[in-house]
Design a protein around this nucleic acid. Sequence first.
DNA 1: GCCCAGGTGAAGC
DNA 2: GCTTCACATGGG
Length: 304
Amino acid sequence: MTNHAFPGEAGTPYSVPTKVFHVRDYDLAATLTSGQAFRWQWRDGSWVGIIANHWVQLHADEFSISATCAEPISDWDWLTKYLQLDLDLCQVLMTFPDDEPMRAAVTACRGLRLLRQDPWECLASFILSSTKQIVQIQQIIGLLCERFGEPVSAGTNYGPAYTFPSPARLARSTEAELRACKMGFRAPYLLETARLLFGGQFDLARLYNLPVEVARAELMNLPGVGRKIADCVLLFAYGFQSAFPVDVWVMKALRQLYFPKRKVKMQRLHRFAAKHFGTCAGYAQQYLFHYMRTKGKLETRTSK
DNA sequence: GCCCAGGTGAAGC
DNA sequence: GCTTCACATGGG
C-alpha cells in the first residue's frame, strides 16, 4: 500500500492510521520478545507498543506486517527504521560462520531481527536490566513509563499509554521515587545518567559518528554502564553491527558450544567473538541468545 | 530456604 | 592486574 495524493490536496501525503508492509523472513514475535525492547504487549492477536510518541499495534502474518496507529500518519519512516524493514536478512545470515552452533541457532530462530531503537530509551532500559529477568525488566519499565511518561492517545478499548520518560523528567525525580518502581540499587545509576544527559555533560547524539571503540568507551563513562550494557546500546540503538553483548546466556552459549569443558575467561570470549562471528557479530549474538533461551522449552514441548 | 536473572563498581588480594 | 562481594527484587 503506497501513499496516494489526497484529491484536492496535491502534494500532501495521504494520512492514514493503518499501513501494510510486505516482508519475508520476519518473525515479529521472536523479535519483540527477544530481550531487545521491553514495552511490547500481546493483546488480542496483535503486538501493542509505543515508539517515540506513537502508540502502534502490529499484526503479522507470513508475508506482511500491518501497523495501526491511534491517529493518522503521513510518514511511516520511524516505523520502517525501528523494525528495520529495509534490511535484507539473507545478506546478514550469509556472514555468519558456517559451524554447527550457528546453523542450529539460525534454524531455530528463523526470522529473528534486530530493532533500531532510540538511544536514550535503550540506554535507560539496559541500565535497569542488570541481574534481572526479562519479565521483571518489563515490569520496572512499565511502572517507570506510567509514573513519569507523557500520556499519548491509544486505540479505543486499550488502556492509557505513555511515552518513555525523558532524561529531563527523570532528572527531576528522586531516588526514592525511582526505587518505588522496583528498580532497587539501579535507581541511583539511572538518576545520575539522566542528570548528566539533561545537564548537557553527555551527548548521546554525538556517538553515531564515532568509531565503535570510542563510542563504547564514552558510554562506559556513564554510571551503571559497563561493557555489556554499552554493547547492548551500541547494537540495539546505534546499529554498530560488531557490538557483541556477553550476558550470562551468551556466556553459557559460547562456553558450551565453542569451549566445552574448559575454563575460559570473559576477555578471551570477547576476543574469540570479535574474530569468529564476522561483520555482523552482533546479529549472530542475538541468534545465540534467543536460541539458548528458547531451546529448553522447545525440547520439552516436542518430547511430550 | 536456595539459586538465578541480558551486571556494575568498589574493595581486597 | 585479577577475584570477590554487595547491591534489590521476584521467579522457579
